[in-house]
């Protein structure tokens, strides 16, 4: 008997259990999801640009494979984290009249 190929495993995106809605209009909760997800995508694009720039500085010419294979060392990761934190402070700031000042 030949062994059957193992089926592909897919993972659910949603957790079992209640997902709370916080605003009177659930559309606001939904829009917050879109905004937060978008913020991640902008950051990912920024990091990809950063990879391209670093590789170009280093090698002068690069391929797509170079980009995919690039992994930041601790110094680069820490520079990226500084950039991410500054970005988060610019984008996700609470209105000063309704919250604490930074």
């Amino acid at each position: 008997m030949t062994q059957q190929a193992e089926p592909k495993i897919t993972l659910p995106r949603d957790a079992k259990g209640k997902r709370s809605v916080f605003f009177d209009d659930p559309a606001i909760d939904q829009i917050m999801t879109f905004i937060l997800e978008l913020s991640a995508e902008v950051s990912v694009v920024y990091d990809r640009m950063d990879t391209v720039e670093r590789l170009l500085d280093e090698k002068g010419t690069i391929s797509r494979d170079d980009i995919e294979a690039y992994r930041p060392n601790e110094d680069v990761e820490s520079a990226r984290n500084e950039r991410r934190e500054a970005y988060l402070k610019r984008v996700f700031r609470m209105h000063p009249e309704t919250g604490p000042k930074d």
Binding site: L36, S39, A40, E41, S43, V44, D47, R48, T51, I67, E68, A69, Y70, R71, E77, R80, N81, R84, E85, L88, K89, F92, R93, D102
Partner: peptide, 20 residues
Amino acid sequence: HDEMNRQHYVSRLRMHILNQ
């Protein structure tokens, strides 16, 4: 490459939500 950067961003986002 991109997935790891997404993960690292989400870590920072979480810290921003907790701290800021």
